[in-house]
Simulated scan of single mutants.
Amino acid sequence: MRWIDLRSDTVTVPTDAMREAMYRAEVGDDVYGDDPTVKKLEEYAAELLGKEAAIFVPSGTFGNQLALFTHCKRGDEVILSDDCHIVMHEVGGASVIAGVQLRTLATHKGEMNPEEVASKIRGEDIHYPSTGLICLENAHSNGRVISLDNMKGVWEIAKRHDIPVHLDGARVFNAAVALEVDVKEITKYCDSVMCCLSKGLCAPVGSILAGSKVFIDRARKGRKLMGGGLRQTGFLAAAGLVALRDMIKRLKEDHDNALLLGRELSNIPGIRVNLEDIHINMVFFDMKETGYDSDKLVERFLERGIKINPGEDGMMRFVTNYWVSKEDIYHVVAVMREVLGT
């Protein structure tokens, strides 16, 4: 049975080209620096992201936490949005791994107000922690893309206070496609950036953390401490190279399919979709007015070969990806109408 999986773009499986590249990959012990395919991936990723160096890590959460661990001293304070992935979906790792305190700010649809960021930077006082890092996220976990002006505003304040900026760019290539800019136009407003090779890019495992050479040299030791020093990683890096070289070019298809899905869902009575918030491949919608329980919807969809997640905080989320076609979108909407009886 072929499944239509809208739970996330993390569910993507490798393409045939990736499987072939993995099969033929030249590998070595990466902890010793002997894996040529990993080296190629890290060099290519650094150049693509406009940074001096890069390091391959097992996951996006690992990459973000390694960035905090590398940038900060224990007891430092990190300024970031209250709805970002590091706060919401990384299991409190910042307190366990880096030993830092998170100072969260409310956002307007994912964007922190630069002036509010400035007001939260700690001055010198015996009672205060030091502000060690500011974190941004683009594209944001809410599916929106943060404007370059907003990023620039936060960046300039950070530089004024000599504080580094880390970008959670799990879907930074989706953001670049949505903004119609080279990804370097986004990453120039951060000192370090993490991007995922999985998700919409279809690699089976792995993310990239990029920054200055000094930063990455320090991060490499931190990666080993955190258990991320892998061995013949070239099999995974080979898929990552295909992801960066080929899969970025087709992300707009996922965005277009998400917008189509959002428009079609908005035509169903009781479903409310904010179409203006569909910037990338995520569709958030409210179906409370239908009176239908989201847990029951998961079961009914599963019976028809469609995988979805239940609601979170009253909102449903469908995510398009490489393996979801336009025809699949129309089928999903038809099943939704059937289940709701509209």
Rank of each mutant, 00 (worst) to 15 (best):
G153M: 10
D328L: 14
K307F: 12
A98R: 05
K252C: 06
D35G: 06
E289L: 13
L209F: 01
F215H: 09
F69W: 13
E43G: 11
I86N: 07
E20V: 02
L201D: 07
L241V: 10
M22K: 02
I306N: 08
S119M: 12
H71I: 07
E43N: 14
T10N: 11
V154A: 09
K252M: 07
D295A: 13
H255Q: 07
G240C: 03
T320S: 13
A106E: 13
N150Y: 09
G311H: 13
V165A: 01
D168L: 04
N321P: 04
V283E: 02
I126S: 15
V177D: 14
V335F: 04
P114A: 12
G211P: 03
G28I: 12
W323P: 00
A170Q: 00
I121N: 04
M336E: 04
K249N: 11
I157S: 01
M18D: 05
P204I: 01
R160H: 10
Y32F: 14
F301M: 15
E47C: 12
G228A: 02
I126V: 15
A25T: 03
A170T: 04
K307W: 06
Y330C: 03
E276C: 00
N267T: 10
T107M: 10
G291H: 04
F285V: 13
V332L: 08
T61R: 10
L201T: 05
L241D: 01
H331C: 00
D168T: 06
D9C: 15
S212V: 05
T70E: 12
I208C: 03
V205H: 02
S198Y: 01
H127P: 03
Y44C: 05
A17Y: 07
G234D: 00
I268E: 07
A176Q: 05
G270P: 06
T342R: 08
F69M: 15
S212E: 05
V57Y: 05
S325T: 15
D313M: 15
R24W: 00
H85S: 11
W155G: 01
S95D: 11
G60L: 10
N309C: 15
D217V: 12
N174Y: 06
K109Q: 12
C190T: 05
H71Y: 14
C196A: 11
K213R: 14
N309V: 13
E52V: 11
H279E: 04
W323A: 11
T10W: 09
I278F: 01
P269G: 03
K188H: 08
D254S: 10
C196Y: 03
I208V: 07
R337P: 02
